[in-house]
Computed example of a mutant assay.
Amino acid sequence: MRPVPGCGRHFRGASTCPSLVLSHRNRLRLPLNTREQRTEQLGFALIAEATDLGVSAREMSPFERPSLSPWLRRPDAYDAIVWSHVDRAVRSVAHMSELIEWGQQHATTLVFGMPEEHQPLVVTPQAHGDAVRRCMDLAYAAEQESRALSARLTGAHAVLRATGRYGGGLVPFG
């Protein structure tokens, strides 16, 4: 075994840091080989993927998700966790704070893809100041977006019910 530069751990035959790639969408956007390529471009080797389909990042902490939580209990198995975007990880400032603190305690790098920017947001265990502030700002924006969407949908359904219109799903016979 040899140390991987910048990883701080030893891995057999590894030339890049091992990472866990995460997603939690109703469907996955990228084919696996593309996710592997993007992960390798960041200097990480894809070792596993945790996918929590149908799980709300707004309502559930990363530490409570069925597919992700077992990995978070095994932080020695990888050096980084890579998400396609911040809102795939969390939609709450409290959850982001909890995740950053966990990353610092367990010497795990958190990587958030930033599609609107061509550089991912990388939060190392030593990160302070700008990177953490940027994460918190993005988590706040995701939280506000989630609340606005929920309020808009709740209002739309209330209007449909008030006007006697059908809101979708199975046709209500009876």
Rank of each mutant, 00 (worst) to 15 (best):
R2L: 10
R2W: 03
V4K: 07
G8M: 00
G8H: 03
R9N: 02
R9E: 07
H10A: 08
G13T: 00
C17L: 05
S19A: 15
V21P: 02
V21G: 03
L22Y: 12
S23P: 01
R25E: 11
R25S: 11
N26M: 10
R27Q: 13
L28K: 11
L28A: 10
L30F: 14
L30V: 07
P31W: 00
P31C: 03
N33H: 13
N33V: 12
Q37R: 15
Q37H: 12
R38A: 09
R38C: 02
R38M: 14
L42T: 02
G43A: 09
F44K: 07
F44H: 09
F44T: 04
I47D: 12
E49I: 09
E49H: 01
A50N: 01
A50P: 07
D52C: 04
G54K: 06
G54N: 01
R58G: 00
R58A: 00
R58P: 08
R58M: 01
R58C: 00
E59C: 10
M60L: 11
M60P: 01
S61Q: 01
S61V: 09
P62Y: 02
F63Q: 03
P66S: 11
L68K: 00
L68S: 02
S69A: 12
W71D: 11
R73A: 15
R74N: 09
P75Y: 04
P75W: 00
D76W: 08
A80P: 09
V82Y: 07
W83T: 05
V86C: 11
V86G: 05
D87H: 02
A89L: 08
R91E: 10
R91W: 05
S92G: 03
V93C: 14
A94Y: 14
M96V: 01
E98W: 03
E98H: 05
L99F: 13
L99M: 13
I100V: 15
E101M: 12
W102S: 00
G103Q: 05
Q104T: 02
H106I: 14
T108V: 09
T108K: 08
L110Q: 07
V111L: 08
F112Q: 05
F112M: 08
G113S: 06
G113R: 04
G113K: 06
M114G: 13
P115I: 00
P115V: 03
E116S: 13
E117Q: 15
Q119L: 14
Q119W: 11
P120E: 00
L121E: 04
A127W: 05
H128I: 04
G129D: 11
V132R: 00
R133N: 07
R133L: 14
M136V: 15
D137S: 15
D137A: 14
A139S: 15
Q144P: 12
R147D: 13
A148W: 08
A151W: 14
R152N: 09
L153W: 10
V159L: 13
T163E: 15
T163F: 13
G164K: 10
Y166E: 00
Y166H: 06
G169R: 03
G169A: 10
L170F: 15
L170R: 11
L170G: 13
V171S: 01
P172V: 00
F173L: 11
G174R: 04
